[in-house]
């Protein structure tokens, strides 16, 4: 029943606005006209799905999926959690993609120029599809902080980028995961594009000692929430107007 209606409109005051001058690149890349607000049509209520057959056994293990001579170097961690919708229901079959810098804060990318060295055993990408209860987990190393050209001395806090496909194109989302206790979070011009402190806290993964892999990896819990849908009983009534 509740998998049929249109999605709740995005709360644009909760997300970062397009124009955020402290993050300089946004200045010339932010639309200035108002967005055209529309009820979802079938073009947004549908979306691609990805079968588990698309994935290989090491896709969610960034420590091993690019390894040449041994495991990637760095603090070994598990990141786990659930993908839910705004109605607090699990989203099964969601493809979640991750990318990140290595333990020294260096990305494996042809346009990356930071002096920290590449790790020959670390590629920096991973992906996973949520199970029936919306659960996922990956194993990786904790990425390093890195400097970036914005101000002359701006640094990104340690973070993992992620991209999520739910069941509909309207749910498409890209964001970044930060780590509990990192003071750099509160000094970052990209983090601070999000106006609400509570919203920022939703991007901070919690250290979870109970789910540590003994003698292997620390665990961080990170739930992701995608847009939720109206109930069709209301939707049907709306159509009468």
């Amino acid at each position: 029943m509740s998998d049929q209606g249109s999605f709740y409109q995005r709360d644009r005051s909760w997300h970062p606005p397009a124009f955020t001058p402290q993050y300089k690149t946004s200045i010339l890349r932010s639309p200035q006209y108002p967005l055209l607000s529309l009820e979802n049509t079938i073009s947004e209520l549908t979306g691609p799905v990805f079968g588990h057959d698309k994935l290989g056994p090491l896709d969610n293990d960034l420590i091993r999926n690019f390894a040449k001579t041994g495991d990637a170097i760095g603090q070994r961690i598990i990141v786990y959690g659930r993908v839910l919708d705004e109605n607090a229901r699990p989203v099964p079959g969601a493809l979640v993609e991750f990318w990140q810098a290595n333990a020294g804060g260096r990305y494996r990318h042809k346009k990356e120029t930071y002096l920290a060295p590449l790790d020959p055993n670390f590629g920096g990408c991973g992906r996973v599809i949520t199970d029936e209860e919306g659960r996922y987990w990956i194993r990786t190393i904790k990425p390093g902080a890195y400097p970036w050209p914005n101000g002359v001395n701006d640094w990104r806090p340690a973070h993992i980028h992620f991209s999520v496909f739910g069941h509909a194109f309207a749910q498409r989302l890209i964001s970044q995961l930060y780590f509990e206790g990192d003071p750099m979070i509160w000094q970052c011009p990209i983090v601070s594009t999000i106006p609400d402190k509570q919203a920022i806290e939703r991007l901070i993964a919690a250290l979870d000692r109970e789910n540590t892999l003994p003698m292997d990896a620390l665990a961080y819990k990170f739930d992701i929430v995608l847009r939720g849908r109206r109930s069709t009983m209301f939707e049907n009534r709306m159509e009468g107007n």
Binding site: W14, L84, I194, R202, L203
Partner: peptide, 8 residues
């Protein structure tokens, strides 16, 4: 729940 906020 609130949607996970976006980042670049």
């Amino acid at each position: 729940l609130k949607e996970t906020p976006s980042q670049t």
